[in-house]
Every structure is written in C-alpha cells, then in structure tokens.
Nucleic acid binder design. Structure first.
Length: 771
RNA sequence: GGGCCGAUGGUCUAGCCUGGUAGGAUACCCCCCUGACACGGGGGUGGUCGAGAGUUCAAAUCUCUCUCGGCCCA
C-alpha cells in the first residue's frame, strides 16, 4: 500500500527530463498521411526584450491546438518559424549602435541586424521549447532565410507576370523617421494636442477677408485652392475669386466642394498637398497641380521659402509666430486632433508623392469577402474585423519599402531605356549587390542593368507562410496533401494585415483559401486590465515565471484564464495559485500509485456514480476541445478532479480500497474505478499540461508516452449524476456536525443516512466512521 | 460619426445562445496534521448580476433606451 511515487509535490525540474525524452524519441514527427492537420503557426518577431508574456501564452495555446488534433487521431504539421524581416530590428539596431541606416553601408548594416535578431531569437526559441511546444524545432524556419525569401520573390514574380503589380506615382503615407512608404494598415490614429490656427486670407475683389482654420499652417506654401460648401451663403460672393495666401503671397482661386463642412471651423477649407487623405481626394477631384512641400527627410523644401530646411513641426511653430506677428491670426484654438501615426516609429506621417510598386487588391475585395465568409472564425465575432476592413479598402497595396532589412524586390532596370525586368522564379536575388541575371533588355537590346534598391513590405513575406510550410512549388505531393491548411492562429490586432494579406496573396496564387479555420486571440494585459508597456513598468517577463512555476503551471493558467478571443489578465500571483492544482493531481496519483491495477466485474454504487460523472466530464471536455476552447476542459477537469473525485469519491472509497471490512470484489471495484478515472483525467489533461500527465502516465500506466494516446470516449454509464448534490451535501452535513460537536474527523458519529443514499451506505459509513 | 466587445461579492471570473434557488477562484475570518496531499482539509463573512423600461407566472439570461469602459475604422 506504500505509494510508489515518493515526493509529495510536483517538481517542475522534472520537465527538463521529459523534454529531453520527447526530443530523443521524436514523438511529434509529422508524416503527410491519413488525416492531416496543418497549423499556420505565427512566426513571432524578435523585436526586443523581454518577450511578451501574452505571446508566450498564445504559443502555449497553439500547442494545445496541436496536441488536441494529435489526440484526435490526426497527423499534425506544427511548424515553428521566426519572422525576421522588417523595421523593428532596423530601429533596434540604429538605436543600439547610434547609427542611421541610410548613412551606413548596406552590407554592414544587414550584418548588425542579423546579430541582433540572432540574440533575440535565441531567447524566444528557448521560451517556446521550455513551454513544451510540440512543434518542429529541428527545422524551424526564418523569414529572412534564402529559402523563404526565394518564395517571397518567386510569388512576386508570378504575380508580376500575371500583371498584378504596377508602378505608380501617387501620394503615399510616408514615415520620414524610418524613411519609407507605409500601407494604410500600418497607420494608427492618436489624439494629439494641436493648435488650430484661424488665419485671415485677403480676397482681392470684393475686398474682404475670409477666415480659414487649419492645423497645418506650414503647408500654406502648398495650398492650391480654398473650398467652401456650395450651400454656404457666407461665401457666395467669393466663389471663383482670387485669394492671397498669407506670408506666401501667392494667389489661389476659391472653389466649391461639398466636402467643406459649414459647421467645421469657419466653413472655408484650404486644400494643400497634402495635409491629410481628404486633401489627396480633393487634389484628384479638382485636378489640382501638386506642390511638394515636405521632402523625404521630413524637412520643408524650397517652395517653403523662409522655412526651407526646417522640420515640419519647427516650420509650423515658426510660421505660427510669423503669422501672429504680421497680424494674420484671428485666434488659435488648442484642440485634440486625430493624427495619423506610423505604427512602427510612432511619429506623425506625411503624405508625399512617390513612385512605388502596387499590388492590385481592390478588384479582389469581393472574392475575399466570399472566402472570408466561409472561414470558421474562433470566436465568430472576430470575423467582423476582417469584414470591416474589406469595406474600407480604397487603394491598392503599396508593397515597396525604402528599407534594407527585408526581402529585395527582384527587378533590374535597363540602364538605357529604364525598362524593368524580373528574373526567373526559383532563386534568391539581391539586385542591390548582385549582377543582373538578365542578359539583354527586351525593349532596346541593351545589356547594361541597374538593380532595384528597395525591399518589400514585410507582409509580402508573412502573407505566404501557408505556402511556405506546405512546400508550395517545392514538393507537389506534399503541397496537395497539406494545402489548404487547417488553422491560422493569430492575435486580433493583425487581422487587417497578416490575416487579410494572406488570404489576398494565397487566393491570387492558388485560387483557394489558405485555411479553413482562423483562431483569433486577444491581448495579454496586466492584472488591472491595462496594456503592458515598458514605460508603465507593468511588463511581466515570461521566462523567470516559467522557470519558477514550470511550463505546465503556466499552460494550465493560460488555459483556465483565457476565453478565446478576449483580452486576458496576467498576474504572477494567479499563475502561482494554479500550481496548487498540479500538486493536487500529483497527490491523487501518488495515492493511487499504491494500488495495482485490477479488473472489476462488479462495481459498487459509488463507483457507478463517479463513472457516470466521468462520462459527463469527457463529453464536456471533448466539446471544448472541438472548438479549440481550452478554458472549458481546463475548468471542467479542475472542478471534477478536485471537488468531486478527490474531495468526495476518494474519501468515500478509501476504506474499501484498503479493504478493511470489505470483500475482495468490493475492493477491486474501488481500485479499478480509481485508476479508470485517473487515467482518463490524465489523457484529457494531456494537451493542456503535457509534462505532468506524461510523467504520471509513464509511472502508473504505460512505458509509452501519453502523447500517442487517443482521447477517451464516454462509456455510456447510466446517468447517476443526480446523486451528486445529495452526496456532497450529506458529506458536508457530517463534517459540520463533527465540527460543531468538537469531534475529530476520525471520531465515530451517529447520524442517519438518507433513504435516497441507502445504496452508498457502506462507503459512507466507512468514510465518516458512522456507527 | 460608424462598428465590435465588455460591465456579476474587495479583486478576478463562470453562467447569458436554450429564462426558473448566481457557481468558482482569490483575499479575509475561524477551526483541523483525519491511513495521497498543510502546495492540504473543513466551516464562514461578503453580490438588489452598470441604470431604466418592456416581454413573462418568472429576467443576470430575451427586447429597447441610456451610462461608463476597452478596442477598431472613418
């Protein structure tokens, strides 16, 4: 009867041995046979230290998806990747070494970025491994590898040849800090305190002034017209008349346009290239000639006259001062202005005309709506984020970036006639340093070429991840077996970028949806519901937490705390208390380890009761797992194991298992049932807490890993769960009685067992020592 | 301005779809080492379920309006 498990608590140190065992035995290897289940794992971006605890939690949950599928009998492809292209590492590198990218040798700069990425990546891989992810670490991929970039470029070339890509000179969102064009999807809006300057403009004839309010007076030099609403009677006399721009002393004509709101400011609006997206639309509508006021360095150009060379903000300060001194200012309001900010550099963007490459997306919107409507979203509410985004797409996708650390755009231009040429797909090209693979210009027969300097928007890389993991154009048999993939897990803030662009690109290339399911996670916030940020000092580093409490504790916390798609709160204290459940499970197992597994033909009433509760539990867990909602099985299992199985059933049958006053048949019924329940619980818990369950499983039930087991099925026991309430209430009553009588729990007591519990009488008498 | 989500004891949360005694965790108070577990066990204090109206025999749950928060889009 001595437990074979000696220790009285689960020691997370054991996880390391188990991890080693999994790795040595390669228990998670994938083969493209039978029913396959493919996870389009998000490759995390190593952008800084520490890694976000919310992200660690996401990956723990993605692993639960993999394990759930595996235990449901599927062959699971669970790739691991690291996203390494893009701005954050460039900014990180610039800061770390105090250098500017565009002033540094390109090859040298790339080298520095790579080193930074390697460091940060190592920490992420370590966390993912120690969390027990059952993914393919042996072949983990990087989006900046030659192989991955080859795919990005090849798919681009494919689209180029289909005529999906074009070059256009148009006003574009420009982030002057990072020196690159950005897509609408990369813009965020913030309310920033701004001065709304009410300026006096002089009309020549009739002689009068009109007031124009603007937050961008530094763009006066780029003003091409003043618009008023056609129904605004205050201005009917000035329509078509010339107005003098203050300070600049240039004349423009007053025009009518319905977009001028009578109620906003004075009702008259100055139209400049370009204060905002509205200006862009007006320039197009009214066929105005653009005046470039802001340069690519974020400073005013020559047309700004006295303000040339000043940064936009400085120019604004200065011109406000001059306007005031020269009597052009009627008043200045301090307002909060909704300002477009670059998501990456967190500075206000400018709208500047530049020549960039575009990928057509407007004509795909309907098709994507159709595909999107067929994808199962978990939770369904987040499908709305995609649908809303699709509604608001108004321009094609600008895909070229003036940055270094990205996949190079594989284009060479004829030196003579400037004709662009793309090379053959299937190889990795670096036009900024490689010599041209094209022999002769198709247009003018010239043999001299210049390589493209720009790189792709990083979403061009990320958006082909489902194609990369399924070996698109690499292994036809593998691809046809694994694509479309099964599930895309990702966080909700990149639905309009990663999720959307992936559908767009994969649809264009394969005509199909990239996955059948999308599983959208919320953010990890701090214990009070606030976003974690370094400046607030509420960041929790996941690594020490995992080391302290163990991966299983972290995982069980994640499962029992997170409702799919909703934001979740992270606190160390909560994680700590989760550990208690694992100790409970450990000690239940420790108790059972003293009893050899037996068969039983004649279960007692208590056995039938708990087996019927077990059936209910299995059904509940399977329901949760089928929806990839781990909250359901985690809480159901904890509730069952702790508050029914351990607290009531084990106490009831303990005497029977030790077999004093019981027959052998009765004893075997108890021991059989104890093991039946525990082994089922371990299997049901295995996707959530893979370490402790595997350890206990191998200690008690098998030489083989629990992770090759299939989920247990309900056995269809007669429904005796109706007794649960009575049993637990009766037990409570006895405990209370003993307490109020100042008796110890082992003391005898006289108490009547209710008629309805008669069939449990023998167990109950032994449990409470009822005489 | 539009959209999505949320509001349940001090704190966090389940229940809401499918209306019928609001469950759990944590914190707090009291008691207990009982043949697996003090990383444990037992008992207890604490909630008019954001506000208002409607439907109903009955509303945390359904409908409407509003308030406050979070996120997203213009």
């Amino acid at each position: 009867m001595e437990p074979t498990i000696k220790e009285t608590a689960w020691d997370p140190e054991i996880e390391k041995q188990i991890l080693q065992q999994w790795q040595d035995n390669k228990i998670y290897d994938f083969s493209p046979e039978g029913q396959v289940f493919v996870i389009d794992t998000p490759p995390p971006y190593p952008s800084g230290r520490p890694w976000h605890i919310g992200a660690a939690s996401h990956y723990a949950q993605i692993d639960m998806i993999a394990r759930t599928a595996r235990m449901s009998g599927k062959n699971v492809l669970f790739p691991i990747g690291i996203d390494r292209n893009g701005l954050p590492v460039e900014i990180y590198t610039e800061k770390k070494y105090g250098i500017r990218m565009h002033e540094t040798d390109r090859a040298e700069f790339l080298k520095l970025c790579e080193t930074a990425l390697d460091d940060l990546e190592a920490e992420m891989i370590q966390i993912m491994k120690s969390l027990g992810l059952s993914g393919n670490f042996a072949e983990y991929y990087r989006t900046d590898s030659e192989k991955y970039r080859t795919l990005t470029q090849s798919t681009f070339i494919e689209m180029w040849k289909q005529g999906q890509v074009y070059l256009a000179n148009r006003p574009n969102n420009y982030d002057w800090v990072t020196g690159t064009t950005i897509a609408d999807a990369e813009i965020i809006y913030e309310d920033i305190p701004t001065k709304l300057v009410h300026m006096k403009f002089q009309v020549k004839d009739p002689k009068r002034t009109i007031i124009i309010a603007s937050t961008r007076p530094e763009l006066l030099c780029a003003c091409q017209t003043i618009i008023v609403n056609p129904e605004d009677e205050r201005y009917t006399d000035v329509i078509g008349k010339k107005v003098v721009i203050p300070i600049i002393n240039r004349e423009v004509e007053v025009k009518v346009h319905p977009s001028a709101e009578k109620e906003f400011g004075s009702g008259a609006v100055m139209v400049c290239s370009y204060g905002d997206q509205n200006d862009v639309a007006l320039f197009r509508d009214l066929k105005l000639e653009e005046i470039a006021a802001v340069g690519m360095n974020g400073r005013m150009k020559e047309v700004a006259g006295a303000y040339v060379g000043l940064k936009v903000k400085q120019a604004r300060e200065k011109i406000i001062e001059d306007l005031t001194n020269q009597g052009f200012v009627e008043k200045i309001d301090n307002i909060n202005h909704r300002t477009p900010i670059s998501e990456r550099s967190k500075t206000a963007i400018e709208i500047i005309s530049m020549e960039e490459y575009y990928l057509k997306q407007k004509d795909s919107v309907d098709k994507i709506k159709e595909l999107g409507s067929k994808i199962n979203f978990h939770p369904p509410m987040h499908k709305q984020i995609l649908m809303n985004w699709l509604e608001s797409i108004s321009i094609d996708w600008p895909i070229s970036r003036r940055r270094f650390y990205g996949t190079e755009i594989p284009i060479w231009y004829c030196k003579k006639c400037n004709e662009p040429h793309v090379p053959e797909p299937g190889k990795y090209y670096r036009p900024w340093k490689d010599s041209s693979p094209i022999a002769k210009c198709t247009k003018c027969d010239s043999t001299e070429f210049v390589g493209e300097q720009r790189t792709f928007d990083t979403w061009m890389d990320s958006s082909v991840s489902p194609l990369y993991i399924t070996k698109y154009k690499q292994d036809e048999a593998f691809f046809s077996k694994t694509y479309p993939t099964t599930i895309r897990p990702q966080s909700k803030d990149i639905v309009r970028t990663w999720l959307y662009y992936t559908i767009l690109r994969c649809e264009k290339l394969t005509g199909k949806t990239p996955w059948t399911d999308a599983w959208i996670m919320g953010y990890g916030v701090d214990e009070h519901g606030a976003k974690m940020s370094k400046s607030k000092g509420n960041v929790i580093d996941p690594l020490p937490v995992i080391q302290k409490f163990g991966a299983d504790t972290f995982r069980f916390w994640s499962a029992s705390e997170i409702n799919v798609g909703y934001d979740f709160r992270c606190s160390e204290q909560k994680i700590e208390t989760t550990k208690k459940f694992l100790s409970k499970l450990w000690n239940v197992s420790r108790f059972l380890s003293g009893f050899n597994i037996v068969e039983s033909t004649k279960p007692s009433a208590s056995d039938k009761w708990i087996l019927s509760e077990l059936d209910k539990l299995i059904i509940e867990c399977k329901k949760g797992y089928s929806e990839f909602n781990f909250f359901i099985p985690a809480t159901a299992l904890r509730e069952f194991t702790w508050n029914l199985f351990a607290a009531h059933y084990i106490e009831m049958v303990k005497g029977r298992a030790y077999s004093s006053d019981f027959t052998e048949e009765e004893r075997d019924g108890a021991i059989y049932t104890l093991h039946k329940v525990l082994s089922s619980v371990l299997i049901l818990l295995a996707p959530i807490t893979p370490f402790i369950t595997d350890y206990l499983w191998q200690n008690l039930y098998s030489k083989n890993t629990i992770h090759h087991e299939k989920f247990v099925e309900p056995e269809g026991h007669e429904d005796w769960t109706k007794y649960t309430k009575e049993i637990t209430e009766f037990n409570s009553e006895v405990w209370n009685k003993k307490k109020s009588a100042n008796l110890s729990l082992k003391d005898t007591i006289e108490i009547a067992i209710p008629q309805s519990l008669e069939m449990f009488a023998k167990d109950l008498k032994a449990m409470h020592n009822i005489v």
